[in-house]
């Protein structure tokens, strides 16, 4: 694709901390290369703000290669911006054209309070994982990876679910601020594998309980989450979670 430069208007959410009220701030950025990533464009803007003695815009980022799940910007009405199956760090400026106005907001959900500007606190996800998103293994020598046979079909489905990077875009896109796509990906990933089987009942109950406690909404299957997920996690996982929950709760011994 041909390289070009562009001038853009950015409307960015600024908020000092979780207590104070935030507002949109308008910034002009000039000579942005179409080869830059969206975050690099923010780096350019922040360098400018710093040189002017202003407070740079806080945003989350880490690996910048689409696998860590840290970046979290709601760009022009969609988490992670206009491209499909993509994170903000992998969104490139060729997605925009000269003269565009881009509105950038943080994830909006009460369970994800804003820490500063575009940075939100996603530790709720960590606590959901801590509640049950693991398998218990006695320590000792590492078991050979191929000692337990796994059916190929299930291995593939588990792998697809495990691709979830926990960025929270599903929550950001959902009208109910539901975390079901995230939780279902984690539950499915382990429920489909023999290693996850011993704790599958207690896991789903504990994780759903923690999800509710954190203040996420209920799933109404609008499928907005799947459309925005950078890892294209399927809502099929949510139906699977429901089945796991049904079995664990209603078909429980006590």
């Amino acid at each position: 694709m041909e390289h070009y430069n562009m001038n853009l208007t950015l409307k960015v959410w600024r908020q000092k901390n979780s207590q104070e009220k935030g507002k949109f701030e308008t910034h002009r950025v000039e000579n942005i290369s179409s080869e830059m990533s969206f975050l690099e464009m923010f780096d350019v803007l922040n360098e400018k703000l710093i040189s002017e003695g202003k407070d740079p815009i806080a945003f989350d980022h880490d690996c910048r290669e689409g696998i860590c799940g840290m970046c979290s910007m709601y760009i022009n009405g969609k988490p992670h911006g206009p491209w499909k199956g993509n994170t903000v760090c992998q969104l490139h400026m060729r997605a925009f054209k000269d003269g565009d106005t881009i509105v950038v907001e943080p994830w909006r959900a009460n369970a994800f309070p804003v820490i500063k500007d575009l940075v939100v606190d996603r530790s709720a996800f960590d606590r959901i994982i801590q509640a049950g998103g693991f398998i218990s293994v006695n320590t000792g020598n590492a078991v050979d990876a191929n000692a337990i046979p796994v059916e190929k079909d299930n291995a593939d489905k588990a792998f697809a679910a495990a691709a979830c990077i926990g960025c929270g875009a599903c929550v950001a896109a959902c009208k109910n601020s539901s975390a079901m796509l995230f939780v279902s990906a984690k539950v499915s990933h382990l429920a489909l594998l023999p290693q996850g089987d011993p704790e599958r009942k207690s896991r789903v109950l504990a994780m759903v309980h923690q999800m509710d406690k954190e203040g996420f909404g209920a799933c109404t299957f609008t499928e907005a989450c799947e459309a925005t997920c950078p890892k294209e996690i399927s809502v099929t996982n949510i139906a699977r979670l429901n089945q796991e929950y049904f079995r664990a709760s209603l078909a429980a011994d006590k």
């Binding site: 009405g77 509105v103 009460n110 009208k175 109404t220």
Partner: peptide, 13 residues
């Protein structure tokens, strides 16, 4: 479900 997002988006999804 509506109460889970007190501050909405400027641009809707």
């Amino acid at each position: 479900n509506r109460s889970k997002r007190s501050i909405g988006y400027a641009v809707s999804y």
